[in-house]
Computed example of a mutant assay.
Amino acid sequence: MATKRNDNIFQLSLTELAFTIIFILLLLLGFVVFQEQKARKELEQELANSQSAERATDALVQARSQLREALVRAKALKPDEVISRLVASADVSAERDRYKAKVDDLDAKLTALEEIQKKVDSAADTSKSDVIKEEVLSSLALQSAVRKELEIAEPGKPVGPKDKATLLEQTKDALALSQALRKEVKAQLGKEATAGDTQKAMAEVIQNAKRFAELGQGGIKPELIRKENADLRGQVAFLKNRLDARGGRDYPPCWADESGKVEFLFAIELKDDSVVVTPAWPSKREADARALPDIQRTLEAPFAHSEFASRVQGVFGWSKKQDPECRHYVQLRSTISDAVRSDRARLVVENYFYKVEQRR
Rank of each mutant, 00 (worst) to 15 (best):
L27S: 11
V33L: 15
K41V: 05
Q45F: 04
A48Y: 09
N49I: 13
S52F: 11
R55E: 07
R55N: 11
V61D: 14
A63T: 05
E69M: 07
A76D: 13
P79Y: 10
D80M: 13
S84A: 15
S84E: 12
V87S: 09
S89R: 09
A94M: 10
R96L: 06
R98K: 11
V103D: 00
L106K: 04
D121Y: 03
D125L: 04
S127R: 00
V131Y: 04
V131E: 08
A153K: 12
E154G: 08
G156R: 06
V159N: 09
T166D: 14
L175G: 04
A176W: 07
S178V: 02
R182A: 08
Q188R: 10
T194R: 09
D197F: 02
K200E: 12
E204N: 14
E204L: 15
I206D: 13
N208V: 10
N208C: 03
A213S: 09
G218P: 01
K221W: 00
P222D: 07
L243T: 06
A245E: 11
G248I: 06
A256C: 03
S259C: 04
F266C: 10
D273I: 01
S274F: 09
E286P: 03
D294Q: 12
D294C: 05
I295C: 02
Q296F: 07
T298W: 02
F303K: 04
Q313M: 14
G314Q: 09
V315N: 03
V315Q: 01
F316V: 09
D323Y: 03
D323G: 04
P324M: 09
R333C: 07
T335L: 08
V340F: 10
S342M: 06
E350W: 02
V356F: 08
V356C: 05
Q358A: 12
Q358E: 15
